[in-house]
């Protein structure tokens, strides 16, 4: 379970950043503005929005990497600011840009994260064996990751995310840059996590993924939440013909509303 209440995040731009982005006036930028939502176990919560909408910032605050400027988040009942270690122990985090240590083998890498999650060696070994069998990592488990293909790396990334059997999993644009087969691996992982009654939050701007996976949907645009309901309700209330068109309609409507 993830509960996000009145979450806001302000970034302070440096002079250089302001110059580069052509941003004038106030150096404070509101990346996320008064966002609230709830993700439930056994359901996939999709955060949809264009690039720069504030999806990654929100997910990073859930993962305790960033601290909220205002508002609160609890993950599995723990506060992200004051009980960060407790939150992280129950959290899996996978993004399209997370990398792996090239100089380690999958075996060493998974051991490393297992230990960081305070698992004992026996549990690590058992869990690793399960995941490696499931993902087909055994045949290259002792080779250096540096020379792996994208697909092989993706499998190791999944094992890394799942080694401590997290109850909440954060996927931030997890399929970006992946080919169809590797992306399918991620989709399967998300579905399986749901079946295992885990809480899943997924951010994406790929409409087909939204359609395929969502149980609950939130649309975020320019830092504000412009829609939040079940995906069924969303589909029932659609005024435009396609998901894309409906998304654009909502985004435009929200802009007119704020003006």
């Amino acid at each position: 379970m993830i509960e996000v209440q009145n979450l806001s995040k302000t970034f302070r731009l440096t002079k250089k950043q302001m110059k580069e982005s052509g941003h004038s006036g106030d150096p404070e930028v509101l990346a996320v503005q008064d966002v609230s939502f709830r993700c439930l176990p056994g359901r996939i919560f999709t955060l949809l929005g264009p690039n720069g909408a504030g999806k990654t910032t929100t997910l990073r605050m859930i993962a305790t990497i960033l601290k909220p400027t205002e508002g609160h988040i609890t993950v599995a009942g723990f506060d992200t600011v004051h009980q960060g270690a407790e939150v992280r122990a129950r959290l899996g985090f996978l993004t399209g840009s997370t990398g792996l240590y090239d100089k380690l083998s999958p075996n060493e890498l998974i051991d490393y994260f297992g230990r960081l999650n305070n698992m004992d060696e026996q549990t690590i070994a058992r869990r690793k064996d399960e995941l490696f069998t499931l993902l087909g990592i055994h045949e290259f488990a002792n080779r250096r990751i540096g020379r792996f293909s994208t697909g092989m790396k993706q499998k190791v990334s999944i094992a890394r995310t799942m080694i401590h059997d997290p109850e909440v999993i954060v996927f931030d644009e997890p399929t970006s840059g992946l080919d169809v087969i590797a992306a399918k691996g991620i989709i399967d992982l998300i579905r399986n996590s749901k079946l295992q009654q885990k809480t899943v939050i997924l951010s994406t701007h790929i409409m087909s993924e939204v359609n395929m996976l969502s149980d609950d949907l939130a649309i975020i645009h320019k830092g504000r939440m412009i829609y939040n309901n079940t995906y069924e309700q969303f589909q029932a209330g659609m005024q435009a013909a396609t998901l894309e068109d409906e998304f654009i309609r909502l985004a435009t409507a929200s802009e007119t509303a704020t003006l």
Binding site: R88, F93, L116, N117
Partner: peptide, 14 residues
């Protein structure tokens, strides 16, 4: 640069 720092930051290690 390689995107591994994030994975370390979301581990329980402080």
């Amino acid at each position: 640069e390689r995107g591994t720092l994030e994975t370390l930051l979301v581990s329980p290690a402080s």
